[in-house]
């Protein structure tokens, strides 16, 4: 049985003159925590809304648990939970009444589940205070409580930590991590807090102007964002062979321009330099690269007319 739970094929959404999502293709496997990353208007929320059935695609298709028909999608969505844009909250009702209403809507028989999820998000003491008097953080927690109510297999969360204090962010992050690791909940999440995403995600989808510009695993992203030596010599192919044979380096990439990225022996820059020199190679470039998700993101989606290439992704620090 396939472990792919969400699929988009040529997914497109046009609002009058604005192309919100433009032929997006991706697959999300069970157990992934996939971060949707992109600037405002990149199409993140629209993609989530299409999966949720709130808006209809103009072209292309998508499937959830392999279901593509209207009836099948409705059934598949009952195994998911969403928190998109506005967290679920009826302003006039208390936290408990809000979640009780959701329980009735979802047809969950056990009334104790309401108290369980309220405790899970720290709203058990909210009392009869109406949601209209909640802080933004409390509303976010209420939305997350609603999303957790039916023990979903997939969670789709749009800016879930927006408005939370640092303690709340850590609490929600830990909760999502636990759900993913212990209960194998697949999570599709968008956030502007890139550092936060980098602590949670196993995979990323980078969007710009409605188009998917890159699909990358956290491991690969870490390689691109984390520390590495950027090595460029007068003969890069020979340099690679020498470093592999003489120093036993295995964790390395060859970039499009032939230069090398070495992800190990980060404290031995003089040794690498000396080895290359002793074997007759002049290192034109040999420096430690250090970048974070933010600078990677800015390079990738934040600047117009910048086509991605691996060398572009490097933000170097000599």
């Amino acid at each position: 049985m396939s472990d792919i739970v969400l699929t988009a094929q040529g997914l497109t959404k046009q609002y009058k003159k604005q192309l919100a999502v433009d032929h997006v293709d991706f697959q999300i496997r069970k157990g992934m925590v996939c971060g949707l990353v992109g600037p405002n208007g990149a199409g993140k929320t629209t993609i989530m809304k299409m999966f949720g059935g709130l808006v209809f695609p103009t072209a292309g298709s998508f499937s959830i648990f392999g279901e593509e028909t209207e009836k099948g999608l409705c059934h598949a969505r009952s195994r998911m939970s969403f928190m998109i844009e506005t967290p679920y909250a009826k302003a006039e009702l208390s936290a408990r009444d809000n979640i009780e209403k959701l329980r009735l809507q979802k047809g969950i028989p056990d009334p104790k589940r309401v108290d369980e999820v309220l405790e899970l998000v720290g709203l058990q003491d909210a009392g009869k205070k109406p949601a209209s008097k909640f802080s933004l953080g409390m509303r976010q927690r209420l939305g997350i409580a609603g999303a957790l109510l039916s023990k979903p297999e997939i969670m789709v969360l749009d800016e879930p930590v927006n408005g939370l204090d640092p303690e709340g962010i850590i609490q929600i992050r830990n909760m999502l991590k636990r759900l993913n690791e212990e209960e194998k909940v697949t999570i599709l999440i968008s956030s502007h807090l890139l550092a936060e995403l980098s602590l949670l995600c196993t995979d990323y989808l980078f969007l710009r102007k409605g188009r998917l510009v890159q699909e990358i695993s956290s491991e690969d992203l870490h390689k691109q964002c984390g520390e590495y030596y950027h090595v460029h010599t007068d003969d890069d192919a020979r340099a690679l062979a020498i470093l592999q044979n003489k120093l036993g380096i295995t964790e390395c990439d060859v970039l499009k321009d032939g230069s090398l990225r070495i992800f190990e022996r980060m404290d031995e820059q003089p040794l690498i330099s000396r080895t290359l020199y002793e074997n007759g190679l002049i290192p034109v470039t040999l420096h430690v690269h250090e970048a974070d998700l933010e600078s990677y993101y800015l390079k990738l989606v934040g600047e117009d007319n910048v086509e991605y290439s691996e060398s572009d992704a490097a933000s170097d620090k000599a």
Partner: peptide
């Protein structure tokens, strides 16, 4: 209209309820 205006009716669709 109450649920439509504050968008909480959207969550019924998101829960997998048919339109």
């Amino acid at each position: 209209g109450w649920d439509l205006r504050d968008q909480t009716a959207n969550y019924e669709v998101l829960f997998g309820k048919k339109r």
